[in-house]
């Protein structure tokens, strides 16, 4: 696997973080955090581990991350030129949150030739947040994973398995369809 020079790696990571933050945004990790726009309180996809998940070879996208970041910055430069902006540094990161959003909307719209690629990137950003797909779920919950916690997913029993002893309102809440067979199917 290639190891880009440290500054290239930094640019790549910052760019991917900015993409992940556009999908499910979070709060800035520090005052000088450029990747995370800071438009949403609490952790977003970045804090949930989007880059860690993307870098895992199990996803099948890890080898392409350098290219994804470079391409995203190329699109961002073209977007900036179209808007009369002159970005300094990694172009996607220098865009405002609204501009990042607008660009991601274009890249993932039906008909865009690279749509499938950007959607697969977005899918893993989602999975980092809504399921912590790079982490053991019970351990992630115990550690306060931002996505699983925000969604209110409950903790499992001590053996790591979920069981809900109370699960039903326990009473008839509607009248069944008149044409139902004795075995419970539609007639």
């Amino acid at each position: 696997m290639r190891s880009p020079a440290p500054d290239e790696y930094q640019i790549r990571t910052t760019t991917l973080e900015a993409f992940a933050d556009t999908i499910l945004p979070g709060e800035k990790r520090s005052p000088d955090d450029r990747a995370v726009a800071g438009v949403s309180p609490g952790g977003g996809a970045v804090a949930a581990g989007a880059v860690e998940l993307l870098e895992w070879d199990a996803t099948g996208v890890s080898e392409g991350l350098d290219d994804f970041a470079r391409l995203l910055n190329e699109h961002a430069r073209a977007y900036a030129a179209e808007k009369g902006l002159s970005p300094e540094g990694p172009a996607f990161v220098t865009l405002s949150f609204a501009e990042r959003t607008d660009l991601v909307r274009r890249l993932t719209a039906p008909g865009h030739p690279e749509k499938a690629m950007w959607i697969s990137l977005a899918l893993f950003c989602y999975m980092a947040y809504d399921s912590g797909a790079h982490l053991d779920t019970a351990e992630a919950l115990a550690a306060g994973h931002p996505g699983l916690t925000a969604m209110g997913i409950t903790r499992p029993d001590a053996d790591g398995l979920w069981r809900f002893r109370k699960f039903s309102y326990g009473r008839a809440l509607a009248v069944p369809h008149p044409n139902t067979t004795p075995s419970g199917s539609p007639a």
Binding site: T22, I23, P25, S40, V104, G147, A150, M151, G152, I153
Partner: peptide, 13 residues
Amino acid sequence: FGPRKKEMLKDWQ
């Protein structure tokens, strides 16, 4: 995607 969607996820239960 975006901030509204993240808010929607807060109500996932």
